[in-house]
Design a protein around this nucleic acid. Structure first.
Lengths: 97, 97
DNA sequence: ATGCTATTTGGTAGAATAGCCAAATAGCTT
DNA sequence: AAGCTATTTGGCTATTCTACCAAATAGCAT
């Protein structure tokens, strides 16, 4: 593997990778218009809360979302609106078949 | 895992997944303004041609790119310009730290 | 401080991914 | 047909990812 290409595109690929999971896409949509806590998201998604926390951590580390703590809840918000634009784009791809 | 969420977002996640690799992002950029064959891309990337062929297959199956055959070469073109828009968006994320 | 709720972290097993090599296929061109 | 080039496919390992459970941490509230 050519190391230069890796260097150039690795961090960009990380962004895509962080979105490349149904649960994480659901989260992005869900917090688009409403701040939600880990617990609330967990109830909506229906997997173990530790799994949800790890998904949130991935999105947070890549700055897709931002968390703010109130009492002992962490509420998450979407940091990158253009993600949703690309999701519309992706859906156009899917539907134009 | 809640099956409904999987069903709703799985295919969308596939799009992101297909772009979540440095080599595939390189390909998307490289064929943006110029049709390129598997062999040409392989020379630019520097991995085994079978690896490149598999990357191209992933992008093709998700309709990110389109291949057309001339003689015994297959030339690839970008099918989804909005991918590049999102890549700009991704880079804004990266640089705003 | 003790409990109570929310969140994160560590560990682990199973699935998926990406690379290489080798072999198969496709399709010109003699 | 036989040779040549380009591409794809199969098989195999090594690595990465994801889900669960259990345990640790954080922080309010009694």
């Amino acid at each position: 593997m050519n190391q230069d290409i890796i260097d150039d595109y690795q961090s960009e690929a990380e962004i895509f990778k962080s979105l490349a999971h149904p649960t994480r896409l659901f989260i992005v949509h869900a917090i688009h218009d409403k701040k939600l806590s880990v617990k609330e998201l967990t109830e909506m998604i229906g997997v173990d809360i530790s799994t949800v926390s790890k998904h949130l951590d991935i999105l947070k580390r890549h700055k897709i979302i931002v968390g703010e703590k109130h009492k002992n809840n962490v509420f998450y918000t979407l940091n990158i609106p253009c993600v949703l634009d690309f999701m519309s784009c992706a859906n156009r791809i899917l539907n134009k078949s």
